[in-house]
Simulated scan of single mutants.
Amino acid sequence: MHTSDMSLRERNRVDTWTAIHNAAAELALEHGWTATTVDKIAAQAGVSKRTFFNYFPSKEDAILGAQDPTLPDADLAAFYASEEDLIHRTVTLTMAVMRASYPYDQNRPRRRELIKKVPELSSRMKHLAAAVEQVVEPVVRAELERIAEDSQTQFNQSTEDAAQALTLYATTIIRFAFSKNPTTLSETGTDSISSAITTFREVIQTSTWLS
């Protein structure tokens, strides 16, 4: 959503969120993890400690500009409406949930720098990745159950195991795409994702042929 489309209240909320995130990121880059405290972040952002916690549950999230993953309604509707196969749809849905974890994100290069310079952030990054999978997996499982019912087909494995495998597979494709193109998580990164999906399909086909 562009700021021009927002109400005054929403713009103020975004401005406050951005001020806290910028203060946290700048302090972490300049002074390191231990010296970056919630008190210092709030002071630099010009907000109270109470306001800080209204926007971020921890300094990790403030530094990263992150929030717990959510499933946007529009992306869920697109998942069901898409005519792509389930692998492609799962990758696309996972990407949407990942993007929702970093709202109003204008500083991806800075985040990459933060992750390199502040290793303490890695545990939160892993937690966020696991949380994304927990959001996506039930949707995939329900879709597998629907497909099985509609086609009157029984899977060789449980739909729970199949959904977990497919969700992890989607995450792996995204990680591969990101390793090739760090802008993959942006809204313009769809070509990188499509290319990564194609690469994985070709590798699997080749592996089957060589076995």
Rank of each mutant, 00 (worst) to 15 (best):
E84L: 14
R141Q: 07
L86E: 06
L29V: 05
R89C: 13
T171Q: 14
L185C: 12
P103A: 01
N54P: 10
E83L: 11
M98Q: 09
L93D: 00
I115L: 12
Q152Y: 13
Q205K: 13
Y102C: 06
T51D: 02
A170H: 06
A162M: 12
Y104P: 10
T171S: 13
L93Q: 00
R89S: 11
A170Y: 04
I41L: 02
L76G: 04
A62W: 01
W33S: 02
S123M: 15
L8S: 14
Y80R: 05
Q67D: 13
V132C: 08
T184G: 01
V135W: 05
P182N: 08
L27S: 03
L86N: 05
G65T: 02
K49R: 13
D191V: 14
T16N: 06
T70Y: 03
R112E: 15
P119K: 01
R9H: 13
S194K: 06
A45E: 03
N12K: 10
S207P: 13
V136P: 08
V136M: 07
T37Q: 04
P57Y: 01
T190V: 15
A148D: 11
T51F: 04
D105M: 04
R13N: 07
Q164R: 05
L210A: 09
P103G: 03
S195C: 02
A42R: 00
A170I: 09
E137R: 11
D150W: 05
T94Q: 08
I147P: 10
S123D: 15
S7Y: 06
F178H: 08
A163I: 07
Y104W: 11
V47T: 03
A131F: 09
G65K: 02
Y102N: 02
A177S: 06
P119L: 11
A45C: 10
M125P: 13
I147E: 10
D85W: 05
T190W: 10
I63V: 08
N107M: 15
G32N: 05
K59E: 04
M125E: 10
V91S: 00
F53W: 07
L144V: 09
N12Y: 04
T190H: 09
T37N: 04
I204T: 14
D161P: 06
L166R: 01
T208W: 14
D15K: 09
S122W: 07
Y102W: 04
I87Y: 00
L8P: 14
I193T: 04
A96M: 04
G32Q: 03
L27P: 07
A131I: 12
E60W: 10
E60N: 13
E120R: 03
D191Q: 12
V135N: 03
N181Q: 07
D61W: 01
E149R: 06
A165H: 06
A100D: 07
H21R: 04
A177K: 00
T90W: 00
A25D: 05
D73W: 13
W17M: 12
A165Q: 07
D85S: 06
T34F: 11
W17V: 12
M95L: 10
S4V: 15
A81Q: 06
A25R: 03
I174K: 00
F79C: 01
L114E: 01
T167L: 11
R99H: 02
F79E: 01
T190I: 13
S192M: 05
Q106S: 15
A100E: 04
S192H: 02
A35M: 09
G32M: 08
